[in-house]
């Protein structure tokens, strides 16, 4: 399943963002951030304690089932009083959740997490970026492995000179996408796909900000 992969901000940044905001209501989420242990039940409880220790008054907290859902506003309505008392909603969800809450409640929001990428759990406790949503998919020519996402430089014509024993020049824990693609295409007997010169990519497949309107026919 596609997941939003997050990481908690540093304590220094959290305290800076919450400076002058004494009363805090904390919101977690039961899906992606529970999986990554960044905003599930135990993390929200631990955050309540940490912020109390720093002198914040915690007016309440909740772990929403799915923070990015349209019904998030309704789900939060039963915490109306605790939310009203708070100076800020401190949100331990991905950026989708933060924006959903911000759109539905007239309340100052502060994210507790940085959203790193959209990916999936590829092994227990390991998450990998899968798609950048570039709007110009070339998976059909790369054996189903995306170099736009998985190559650090997003190269589409083969590896750079930094590839090292199948690993990336920036991190030996990261695979060289082009070694993976080469091996896959070789197994499939379709290496010609890699020999084909790829023209410069269209970086405006869907110009930012993305928007799609399906017209009723």
């Amino acid at each position: 399943m596609i997941r939003s992969i997050t990481q908690q901000k540093s304590e220094e940044e959290i305290l800076r963002l919450l400076e002058g905001l004494g009363r805090v209501f904390i919101i977690g989420c039961g899906t992606c951030v529970t999986l990554t242990h960044t905003g599930g039940e135990p993390e929200v409880e631990a955050m309540k304690e940490r912020l109390s220790d720093k002198g914040k008054l915690i007016t309440g907290g909740v772990v929403l089932p799915v923070a990015c859902d349209n019904l998030t506003g309704d789900a939060l309505s039963k915490y109306g009083q605790q939310i009203a008392q708070a100076d800020v909603l401190f949100i331990m969800t991905c950026a989708f959740g933060v924006q959903t809450v911000a759109r539905q409640l007239k309340k100052l929001v502060v994210p507790a997490l940085d959203t790193l990428f959209i990916g999936k759990e590829t092994a227990l406790g390991q998450f990998d970026e899968i798609c950048l949503q570039c709007g110009a998919c070339i998976l059909g020519e790369t054996g189903g492995i995306c170099p736009v996402t998985s190559c650090h430089k997003g190269l589409v014509n083969g590896p750079c000179g930094g590839t090292n024993n199948g690993k990336c020049e920036i991190d030996s824990a990261k695979d060289c996408a082009w070694t993976l693609i080469y091996n896959r295409l070789k197994d499939l007997g379709t290496l010609d796909a890699m020999r084909r010169f790829q023209q410069p990519r269209n970086h405006q497949g869907e110009p930012k900000p993305g928007k799609l309107v399906i017209s009723a026919s």
Partner: peptide
């Protein structure tokens, strides 16, 4: 024509890297 090292290897590690073209596309250009 070179691809170029990652900015992470240099002294401006938070810079945006471009790679709009790659080295073979620059040659073709």
């Amino acid at each position: 024509c070179l691809t170029g090292d990652s900015v992470l290897l240099g002294d401006h590690k938070e810079a945006k890297s471009v790679f709009d073209l790659d080295s073979s596309q620059l040659l073709a250009a």
